[in-house]
């Protein structure tokens, strides 16, 4: 049997329910390397996921507030630049959560790969 050729992934935003699970992990992942402010996060998610996980302010900021409430993120206002910005960073609990979520997503991706929904991860 001929191997199945890889299919181009359409760059359409994912379903809202799927986003509900993927959004927090994406934010945690982006903040792993350092603190970022809201617009920066929106742009980063958009660019790095090719728009698939793109989220507007109406989704991002409530998400950030919730994660902050759960202790996964911490924030601070910075007046150092021309404009004031609110920076978010990972907390220890956030890092722990990111590690756990990464494992779960990996497992999901493998399972989906096994089923042929996505390419199996190497």
């Amino acid at each position: 049997m001929r191997a199945m050729a890889p299919t181009r992934i359409p760059s359409t935003p994912v379903d809202r329910e799927l986003m509900r699970g993927a959004g927090p992990t994406a934010v945690l992942k982006l903040l792993e390397r350092g603190e970022m402010y809201g617009y920066e996060l929106v742009e980063a998610i958009d660019k790095r996921t090719d728009g698939i996980l793109a989220m507007g302010q109406s989704t991002l900021y409530p998400l950030l507030y919730n994660m902050e409430a759960k202790g996964l993120l911490a924030s601070r206002w910075s007046e150092e630049n021309a404009r004031p910005r609110k920076y978010y960073r990972l907390t220890a609990a956030g890092r722990k959560r990111l590690a756990a979520d990464s494992l779960q997503w990996r497992a999901v991706a493998q399972a989906m790969g096994s089923l042929g929904v996505v390419y199996a991860l190497s």
């Binding site: 402010y37 920066e40 929106v42 507007g56 302010q57 109406s58 206002w77 609110k86």
Partner: peptide, 27 residues
């Protein structure tokens, strides 16, 4: 929230996005 959204839109404008684009993306 007002301050953070204002900062967000200012960043958007500064990044070259138009007001209409930002409004459309806001939801």
């Amino acid at each position: 929230i007002h301050r953070e959204l204002s900062a967000h839109f200012c960043d958007g404008i500064a990044a070259g996005e138009s007001a209409d684009e930002l409004l459309a993306k806001f939801g």
